[in-house]
Simulated assay, not measured.
Amino acid sequence: MSVRALVVDPSAPAAVRYAEVPDPVAGPGQVLVDISHVSLNYGDLNDARSGRVPAGAVLGSDAAGVVVQAASDGTGPAVGTRVVALTSGAFAERVAIDVGALAEVPETVDLAVAAALPVAGIAALRSLRAAGLASDTRVLVTGASGGVGRFAVQLAARAGAQVIASVGSAARGKGLVEIGAEEVLIGLAGLDRPVDVVIDSVGGPQLVAAWNLLAPGGHIQSVGWTSGEPAVFPPYATVGPAKSLASFVIEGDAGAELAVLAGLVAEEALAVEIGWLGSWEHFTEAAEALRGRRVSGKAVLAVRGNCRTRRR
């Protein structure tokens, strides 16, 4: 038996191709999930080209679907439960997933919407927690129109912070005030007061500029590097009042936090922007749109059933 999957192939367009892979076998603390939707991240595209995910391995981290086999040790959700998961090798028709890596999806939340939560939502939630927030915190979110950015804007605003959203163009700033940003800037133009926290997904020269805007005691969380450009700090830029730049990676089980995020979506307290929605048969198109910064929010791929491609 086998299932269809998207696997890494450095010679293929977007370094990914379709392949038949062995039907997954669940371990004692795992469930089998029939995947209905997955979402695509910049990190997935970089993983496919960098060698971090080896050739022939299944790509992906974000998935939502339905449990078709419960865990043999009695843990986790029952057969028929709708779930969202953050797991390696997510881009396949069926995946074995650790019970700690998934959460139940409320009935009012579409699985396409749930699939957009894992990497971007967890990155936003954990990076904000790591940086520390208070009601008077000034938070700068760069790349605010992207998946992580939109979640970070909303979660920071919910915590009572003053949120400044930085985007690449006026068009990409659309809707950010409505979800919690007090200011929307093109790049960092016009930002002349220090900020306490930066959630940065752009990197490059903008990261250096954000460092210069950081107040004493402030923190930058580096969650991405979509610019692909080097960050060059001038001499003595890191000498002075204490402030920090922290690298970020998602580690450990994410199930509890996925439950929090899915619950906020169900309560209509967290909006999920899907800027590209279509069949996974159009993976290359989705990848090109994401790399070309033509996607606001998330790109979501339907694994099962027909899905009409939507672009914004």
Rank of each mutant, 00 (worst) to 15 (best):
G74H: 00
L128A: 02
S296W: 11
A254Y: 07
P194H: 01
W225Q: 14
P235G: 03
F233I: 04
P235N: 07
H282Q: 14
S166W: 06
E281I: 03
A144E: 02
Y18H: 15
E229W: 13
G228Q: 12
R17M: 02
L86M: 06
D73P: 06
V67D: 01
S127H: 15
P241L: 10
A12M: 09
V139C: 02
A19Y: 14
R172P: 06
E182S: 07
A302L: 04
Q69V: 12
L6W: 09
A302Q: 05
H37T: 11
F283D: 00
V260Y: 14
G56N: 11
L258R: 10
E182K: 07
R82P: 12
C307I: 03
L191R: 06
A266Y: 07
A152T: 03
P118L: 12
L290A: 03
H219E: 02
V148H: 02
L102E: 13
V184C: 10
L176D: 14
A189Q: 09
Q69L: 12
A159Y: 12
V300A: 12
T137D: 00
P234F: 09
A254N: 09
A130L: 12
V25S: 02
S222H: 10
A78S: 11
N212P: 05
A242E: 02
I97S: 06
I164D: 00
L290K: 10
L32E: 04
A159D: 15
G204T: 01
G76M: 11
V84S: 04
S279N: 13
F91N: 04
L214T: 04
P194G: 03
F233L: 08
R158K: 15
D136T: 09
P13A: 03
P77E: 11
A231K: 05
L125I: 10
R312K: 15
A112P: 05
G190N: 10
D9T: 13
A302M: 03
A144K: 08
A124N: 08
G132M: 03
V202P: 03
V25N: 05
L133R: 05
E251C: 14
K174M: 09
Y236T: 12
P106D: 08
A189G: 06
V99K: 09
A63G: 00
Q30K: 06
V198M: 01
G190W: 02
R4M: 05
V177A: 07
E20P: 13
G263Y: 12
E285S: 10
E183G: 01
E268L: 00
G143D: 11
G278M: 07
